[in-house]
Design a binder for these strands. Structure first.
Length: 934
RNA sequence: UGGCGCGUAGCUCAGUGGGAGAGCACCACCUUGACACGGUGGGGGUCGUAGGUUCAAUCCCUAUCGCGCCAACCA
């Protein structure tokens, strides 16, 4: 126990608490669950090992930590498995940048990885990973993430690398991995192949060049048109330099304009190559001139077209970003230069008829944002369709459910049109492809380990050269749910925690990651990798723009944590994590939840103060013999109404919080907690509890103290998954705590720990719901609010006391008021609350209250400025009149009477009567008032 | 071109077939023994626009405008 400071100061305890949890093994899962115990597991979406925490990480890890802490408190054997991703291109690029700064090569250029050589460069990158790789994990700890660090994995760990090789070899043996020459996306800057997903289409302003291709016959003789001039085809393009690789021109077979050209040829401008005119219904007659230049080696659609028509593929754009020798006079030029030159030369030769401005999409490398070019290259591919089919079925049959459900549509859309996955990358940082080529017989061998000799010709191992390429980073990520649990070994962890319970991630990586995990999981484990996919929204800045370094609108979660604490940030993210909407993070909101943490802080302080105050009065309150919960169970009926009320409200809170957690509607849970703790517990319960604490009846004081302590206990437990630090710190200050253990910890012989995070999550006692108490407190609130409103409207200071008289129609209401007298007096600060005998006195104001149905009267003499009160009454009458008008309109419609549900009609009638009565009272009061002033 | 989402108070967002809610901001009053990171009261919205269904629509349907995202074979 340590004394609580004056206010919530997160910096004073967050780090220490995390360390305590971590060191006492609170985050650790057990390889086996206890019989009857559920297992719950989530694998972290592995952040880039050299990355830094951004708001997206903060969101995903907050959500996961909330779910994990909740399930752990529920008693599940809970595993949240941490780890990082080697992030091939990104990490390699960072190290390359670093060495470039360090020195020059003998040629005077900045150092590149080639100057170091592969082995040294990879060693260097490992070192970089060791030096910088811990940052992100430290940051996750600052957020409070209850990850089982003993199981931390890295995608290039020995074990995970073995899993990668195993998968590669098996897929190869099954014919699902092949090597082939295909058109792929190539980033000339990163010098590697990219998958379709790694190329981001972006709109760019460009030009639409209309080029002239002259028509010739099969012998190369010019074809004359009707006007005697040579026939020509005008073709529009956005990429004129690709004409160097054109091997055909295509028109639509039914395009009448070109029917007479079928079977003819054209002369390729600049190069003079004669190429055929082909027909294909792929061509859009309406677009441009309706004629299309076909460059099979540098355009995906043209590639398909070329395959269909057996066209030659002429590669003119090289991997180095320069035109190849096939480009004739343009060879050696950079692509951009070649474009300029080609356009210039076409113009000179009169073959450029028109240039228009044109906005079109260009594929950019996801990593470096340079233009990626389609080129033909020999790469490794995964034949994806056989893997996709069962993955589609898994979602169709509901074995895997997406939340929000709309994302399933997106998933299907992509999966139905999926293309083979190019998995080889011309990088050094990553899993080198386990394939060897024999220097003497050229045989290709795919194996888990380097073969001792060539299986083909028996040549020695030294003759074998391993494929230089590495695998796409996402290849190893796809195995994450089972590779991290020890696969391909048969481990207990795998048995216990696979399939994982929930996958929580951003929708932006459905294709990159989620879909591929589903495919690999089903294929290699015969079982889906998770049953639920929860996709959170994107975190944006206040203006709704994507946060990015270049825009400078990044809100750094760590700065927020330093300023306000991890808990306010977590609560903000949880409260805003509604489904299907982007999260616009505002710092104001975080500050608001900091105030909330402070509010809870002070509520606990209030308990301490009351406990001490009783002690000073000579009343030592100890924990009840059988524990608080039992004590309340046995003595609840004897408690004060406000105690029974708050207990009842707590019981309603528990399912509200838990329901939100179950449905992934964390905002619902957060809102319920916020509303309860501030506007019920603090605003009303604590205020009401001051009565017994100040009173002489120590029995009542103790009853309220126990109820207060119990309610705090439940509230702190419910809040703990959301705001773990402050709840733990507060809990540690409280008396009568229990050391706690989870079943697996106990089974594994680990000592129980004095921590909130392992206490049982509150269970509902439906019997403690107390409608009568709720009604009674609602009545107190109704009266108190009416009086406060009267004060506010008339500007009467809180110190000024006055008497309150009431007139109730029902005896039941009178009884209720009689019971609540003290509470109303205390909270409304009135000197008396008594039954009004006869009619209203001449100077009495009228305050109608709808619940409880009473009329309050206050003697205005010496209290109120007559004009102000007149104004208040007029306003009130106006409002009531408006209400009457509305209800009357409704009731005067015959169709409403006839078709609306009878209870509703009845309700409206009753309301009309009540409103009429209210108006009469108010008007009478106004009349008295005018007499008084007149 | 198709798919998805959004449009509610000055701002950020909840929400529902029966007269619109929260937080922040704003105004007034209050240094009341948990809390000024506080308390009390108040002002503020024809729920994007137009139709339709219904006794009743902010909510359901249709159209339309605006914004955003995603997927695309329009060179």
């Amino acid at each position: 126990m340590r004394p609580l400071g004056k206010s919530y100061e997160p910096a004073e305890f967050e780090r220490e608490l995390y360390q305590v949890w971590d060191e006492s093994g609170c985050f650790e899962a057990s390889d086996e669950s206890v019989p009857g115990q559920k297992s719950f597991s989530i694998v972290i979406p592995p952040p880039n090992v050299t990355g830094v925490l951004h708001m997206g990480h903060a969101l995903t890890n907050t959500i996961q930590d909330i779910l994990v802490r909740w399930r752990r408190m529920k008693g599940d054997n809970t595993l949240w498995l941490p780890g990082t991703d080697h992030a091939g291109i990104a990490t390699q690029a960072q190290v390359e940048k670093q060495i470039a700064k360090e020195g020059k090569s003998p040629s005077g250029k900045p150092l590149t990885r080639h100057d170091l050589g592969r082995e040294a460069f990879v060693a260097r990158t490992w070192k970089w990973k060791e030096d910088h790789g811990r940052e992100i994990t430290h940051q996750l700890k600052r957020l409070g993430s209850s990850l089982d660090w003993k199981r931390e994995r890295f995608t290039m760990d020995e074990g995970l690398s073995a899993a990668v090789r195993e998968v590669f070899v098996r897929l190869y043996e099954e014919g699902l991995i092949y090597r082939g020459e295909r058109i792929i996306n190539w980033c000339p800057r990163c010098q590697t192949a990219l998958s379709d997903l790694e190329v981001i289409p972006k709109e760019r302003k460009g030009n639409f060049w209309h080029l002239v291709y002259k028509v010739v016959d099969e012998n190369g003789k010019p074809v004359k048109g009707a006007d005697g001039n040579q026939e020509q085809l005008v073709i529009a393009t956005t990429r004129p330099e690709t004409l160097l690789g054109d091997t055909a021109v295509a028109v639509h077979p039914e395009d009448e304009r070109y029917r007479h050209l079928h079977g003819k040829k054209v002369v390729l401008p600049l190069l003079g190559r004669v190429i055929p005119i082909i027909t294909d219904s792929y061509v859009d007659k309406e677009f441009g001139s309706g004629a299309l230049k076909v460059t099979p080696a540098h355009d995906f659609n043209d590639y398909d077209l070329g395959k269909r028509h057996n066209l030659p593929m002429v590669s003119v754009m090289g991997k180095d970003g320069r035109i190849t020798p096939a480009g004739g006079p343009y060879a050696g030029m950079k692509f951009a230069e070649a474009r300029e030159q080609v356009v210039l030369n076409l113009r000179e030769q009169g073959l450029l008829v028109k240039t228009e401005d044109h906005v079109h999409k260009v594929g950019l490398c996801q990593r470096c944002e340079n233009v990626a070019e389609p080129i033909i290259s020999k790469q490794w591919f995964v034949k994806i369709e056989p893997l996709a089919k069962p993955a589609i079925a898994a979602v169709e049959t509901g074995k895997i459910q997406f939340s929000p459900k709309n994302w399933e549509k997106t998933y299907f859309e992509w999966m139905y049109n999926i293309r083979d996955w190019c998995i080889s990358r011309q990088l050094w940082w990553g899993h080198q492809i386990p394939a060897w080529y024999c220097g003497s017989c050229q045989e290709l061998t795919v194996a888990r380990e380097k073969p001792a000799k060539c299986p083909g010709c028996g040549a020695r191992a030294s003759e074998l050269r391993q494929d230089e390429d590495v695998l796409d980073t996402w290849f190893s990520s796809a195995l994450w749910p089972f590779s991290t649990l020890g696969w391909p070994e048969k481990t207990k962890a795998l048995e216990t925690f696979y399939p994982t319970s929930i996958l929580e991630t951003g929708f932006d990586i459905i294709f990159f990651w989620v879909a591929r995990m589903i495919m690999m999981g089903i294929h290699f484990r015969d079982e889906v990798p998770f049953h639920k996919v929860y996709l959170h929204a994107m975190v944006r800045d206040e203006k709704g723009e994507k946060m990015s370094k270049s825009k400078g609108n990044v809100i750094d979660p760590l700065v927020l944590i330093e300023q306000h604490g991890a808990d306010p940030l977590r609560f903000t993210l949880a409260a805003m994590a509604g489904q299907g909407r982007d999260i616009k993070l505002s710092v104001d909101r975080v500050e608001g939840y900091r105030a909330y943490c402070n509010k809870i802080w002070n509520a606990v302080k209030f308990f301490h103060l009351q406990l001490d105050a009783l002690k000073e009065k000579g009343i030592e309150v100890a924990e009840p013999a059988g524990g608080l919960e039992n004590w309340i169970g046995e003595n609840r009926a004897k408690l004060d109404v406000h105690d029974r009320w708050i207990l009842s409200r707590v019981e309603r809170l528990i399912p509200a919080v838990e329901g939100g957690l179950e449905r992934f509607e964390l905002n619902e849970s957060a809102q319920a907690l916020y509303e309860f703790s501030w506007h019920e517990f603090c605003d009303w319960y604590i205020e009401l509890s001051k009565l017994p604490f100040r009173g002489a009846d120590s029995g009542k004081a103790i009853g309220t103290l126990y109820t207060l302590r119990y309610t705090l206990e439940v509230l702190l437990r419910l809040l703990h998954p959301f705001i773990p630090f402050v709840t733990e710190e507060l809990w540690r200050s409280l008396p009568w705590r229990k050391a706690a253990n989870t079943p697996t910890r106990a089974r594994d012989g680990k000592p129980a720990v004095m921590t909130l995070m392992l206490q049982e999550f509150p269970r509902q006692h439906a019997a403690w719901i107390d409608e009568a108490a709720e009604k009674e407190i609602a009545a107190v609130r109704g009266l108190v609010e009416a009086v406060r409103n009267f004060r506010g409207e008339n500007n009467i200071a809180p110190r000024v006391e006055f008497a309150l008289r009431y007139k109730a129609a029902a005896a039941e209401t009178e009884a209720l008021l009689a019971r609540s007298t003290e509470q109303v007096r205390s909270l409304a600060r009135v000197s008396a609350l008594e039954r009004a005998a006869g009619a209203g006195g001449a100077t009495e104001a009228v305050l109608p209250v709808s619940y409880p149905p009473v009329e309050l009267r206050i003697d205005l003499k010496g209290l109120v400025n007559i004009e102000e009160e007149t104004r208040r009454l007029r306003k009130e009458i106006e409002k009531v009149a408006g209400d009457i008008q509305f209800v009357s309109n409704k009731l005067s419609q015959e169709t409403f009477i006839a078709k609306a549900p009878p209870q509703l009609v009845e309700k409206e009638r009753k309301r009309q009567q009540e409103l009429e009565a209210k108006r009469q009272e108010l008007e009478a009061a106004l009349a008295r008032l005018s007499k008084l002033s007149g």
